[in-house]
Simulated assay, not measured.
Amino acid sequence: MVLSIINLSVKLGDQKAVDNLSFDMNRGEVVGLLGPNGAGKSTLMRAITHLQLHDGSISIDGKDPAALSSNERARLVAYLPQTRTIGWRITVRDLVALGRMPFRAFGTRESATDREAIEAALELTDTQHLASRIASELSGGEQARVLTARAVAQTTPLMVADEPASGLDPAHQIMLMQALRRLASQGRSVLVSLHDLTLAARWCDRVVLLDKGSVADEGRPDKVFTRQRLATVYGVRTQIAHSADGLVITPTDLVER
């Protein structure tokens, strides 16, 4: 088991953003984290990556992240936050290479392992052709892919990605999800928050559906994504079709309250 969360709660001001939440992730899984805005997805991810104070228990690869140094945590979990603006002039390759810093002593040169991880991350995210470009001069979608490559280069057992498909065109959304699946096939685990129900249904092994900071349902996408459940959690009516590529879920209207 690569991630275990038991009775996790996070309070933001007077409100509980995450309320007594528990779930596990196995090695080699892609788990989708879904739910409406304000359901607690980003707060949960920040708690997992030790960026948010919380109550309850979190274990990553059998270790308590709170008991580790920042460098030790960075070897366990890579975090791709929702805000992905690159504010400094640096080449794409050098930016992706920052993902290798937890594995190197300060001032030392890249090892062969580092170079291999960097090139693999560029290839996986289809950003090799951008390697010599200045990262801050790229489009928003290109910057998102480059920052994903940096997280991939970290080669951690767990990757936590907060809405990585946001801002990407349909082709690169699919390429991103294919990349996450390839990571899982290599034995890494990916927790990814998504708003696109069809992307989640097509590419995730399991989904965890949040509502008001709690788990509304979890399991295989075809079991969780029912018209009734989506109406209850999202307040929308949906059409659900089964295609050769998996479920296709289309929100069609609001549920009458």
Rank of each mutant, 00 (worst) to 15 (best):
V96S: 05
A97G: 11
A97F: 00
A97M: 11
M101Q: 12
P102T: 11
P102E: 03
F106A: 14
T108M: 09
E110V: 08
S111L: 09
T113Q: 14
D114Y: 09
R115V: 14
A117L: 10
A117S: 11
I118D: 00
A120I: 05
L122P: 07
L122C: 10
E123Y: 06
T125N: 07
D126C: 12
T127K: 02
T127P: 06
H129Q: 14
H129Y: 11
L130A: 03
S132R: 15
A135P: 03
L138T: 01
G141F: 03
G141I: 02
Q143V: 00
L147Q: 15
A149Y: 08
R150I: 00
V152L: 08
T155E: 12
T156L: 10
L158V: 12
L158D: 01
V160E: 07
D162T: 07
P164C: 12
A165K: 01
S166I: 09
Q173P: 03
M177K: 07
L180K: 00
G187W: 06
G187C: 11
V192C: 06
L194C: 04
H195R: 11
D196A: 09
T198V: 01
R202W: 09
W203S: 07
R206C: 07
V208R: 08
V208L: 04
L209Q: 02
L210K: 10
G213R: 03
S214H: 09
T226Y: 05
